[in-house]
Every structure is written in C-alpha cells, then in structure tokens.
C-alpha cells in the first residue's frame, strides 16, 4: 500500500505567544484569566503547561487554536498572525467531544472531508492509517457510546491527527482516565509523536504526566493567570512514568509549583 502524499509529515509549526492578556466578564466582576503571557514553542517541540485549575491553561489553548481572541498581545504560528481556527492547528479536548451521530470512522473522516483535493478512497485510507496508529483498527464501525473512556480518547486523538495539523493542542486529554489506561496512552503518545513530528501543547495538572511527556514544562499560577517558571526535561525517550529520574524532576517541579501557588497539585 502506498501512502498518499497526504500522510507525509509537514514541517511542525513554530508558535509565538507575545504579551497576551485575556479577561472575562463574570458576575463577580472582571476575571483576568491570562495576564501578559509570553511563550515560544519551537518546531516539533512537546511543551506541557502545568498549573492548578483556573490559571488560564484552557484559555491559552483556545487562543492558540483561534477559537477565541486575546484582549491584548498577539499569537502567531510561523510568523503568521493567528486570527481564526484552521486545520493546521488541531485540538483535543478533555471531554472527548466526539460526535455521537457518527461512528468511529465517521468521526475520523470529519476533518478529512473538508479537504477537497482528496478522493473518497484516499480519505478512507488516511482515516484507517490513523485508527491503526491509535490501535483501534478493529473498531472502525463502533458507535461512540460503545467505547471505553480510553478508547474514546484514542479516537479523539486519531480525529485530531487526521487533518494532519502542524500543531496539536491537548487539553487535559487523559485526566478522566484510570491510571492503567493513562500509562498505555503515555507510551503510545510518545511513540506517535516520534513518528508524526508535531508541535504539541499539552495541558495537564499532573506534574508526573508533564515530566513524562514534555521537552519542557511550563508552570502557571492563577489570579491572574501567569507563567511563573519553566523546566527543561533532559531525559531520554521513551520515558517511563515510574522511573526514578522522572520522579526526581517531578518532585522539584511540584515544590516549585507549591511555592508559586500555595496549593498542592495532583502528584499522582
């Protein structure tokens, strides 16, 4: 089987977030979700954003994907200003957000059908390629409600990868899963990332998860949402979440997080 050019890896995106602020009007007044946040992410880099809930992590991803607009500052991808959503920047949500009116294959095909240059046969080939990549080849025609939580997130990952984005945002994608399922997914995600070079922004409140996956871990603190500190993780891949070196990093980062926020994040 020859892979269509559609399956070639595009060059991953470079992301620049410059002095971005975003606030929301709430009943209790003006809420500063992000305050003067700057961040650059290199080509193909895997960056994890960590912080207690409410510190603006999801807000930042919404700005990066173009689902929302900043009040101040700007975001750009490869030097081009981000003004709206586009399939070169994919998103995976905490709730799987799969479409219940489509089966597994239909969900993965959704984004591919928006690419007019592909023939139906090519779309099918691409969709099957990604379903195989996430290990769900035998569930192509399953309904969404028939899948376990872990399988749903795998479908969501395949669906987000299928349009071949150059940047992938992942918003606590594994938070609702049990520990065993999560460990499988850490391994698989690292494997997929090494094969399908993407720039990834990964949000989590789980420090070990961040250390296991990220090239870099960025710490946020709330009220107002700010970046406080960054850690480079120099561990060889693939990483095992239960390794001693990883635990060492996690302990240091957890301590830093506590000193910035005064709260204890999840240390699972």
């Amino acid at each position: 089987m020859t892979l269509p050019s559609e399956l070639e890896n595009p060059v991953p995106a470079k992301l620049a977030v410059e002095h971005v602020s975003k606030s929301f009007q709430t009943k209790r007044g003006n809420l500063q979700a992000l305050d003067d946040v700057s961040l650059t992410v290199g080509e193909g880099e895997f960056v994890c954003l960590v912080g207690p809930s409410g510190c603006g992590k999801s807000t930042l991803l919404n700005l990066v994907t173009g689902l929302d607009e900043p009040d101040k500052g700007g975001l750009s991808s490869d030097g081009l200003k981000i003004t709206r959503t586009g399939r070169e920047r994919g998103m995976m949500f905490q709730e799987h957000a799969l479409f219940p009116w489509l089966d597994v294959l239909g969900n993965v095909l959704f984004g591919l059908k928006l690419k007019p240059h592909l023939t139906p046969a090519e779309r099918l080939q691409v969709a099957k390629f990604y379903l195989e990549l996430v290990g769900l080849k035998d569930f192509i025609h399953a309904n969404i409600h028939e899948l376990s939580g872990g399988m749903k997130q795998r479908v969501a990952l395949a669906r987000a990868l299928a349009p071949n984005p150059r940047l992938l945002c992942m918003d606590e994608p594994f938070a609702a899963l049990d520990a065993m399922t999560r460990e499988h997914l850490y391994a698989d995600l690292q494997d997929i990332w090494s094969r399908r070079r993407k720039t990834i922004l990964f949000v989590t409140h789980n420090v070990r998860e961040a250390v296991c996956l990220g090239d870099r871990v960025v710490l946020f603190s709330p009220n107002p949402g700010r970046i406080r500190e960054e850690f480079r993780i120099d561990l060889p891949r693939p990483r095992d979440i239960n390794s001693v070196e990883l635990a060492g990093y996690a302990t240091r980062i957890t301590r830093a997080l506590k000193s910035h926020t005064g709260t204890t994040p999840s240390a699972e």
Binding site: L67, G90, F93
Partner: peptide, 24 residues
C-alpha cells in the same frame, strides 16, 4: 463543544450548520 471541535478541524459557517448543528 461540538461546534468548537468542528472548527478546529476546519469547519466554518454553513458547513458547521449542516454537518454539525443539524445532525447533533
């Protein structure tokens, strides 16, 4: 969330209405 997910896959306007809002 359905409309938001669709937008991140490149769906806009009428396409979203017909392929997301309607079936949902």
């Amino acid at each position: 969330i359905y409309v938001r997910a669709a937008r991140t896959m490149g769906s806009h306007g009428l396409h979203t209405l017909i392929h997301v809002v309607l079936p949902a």
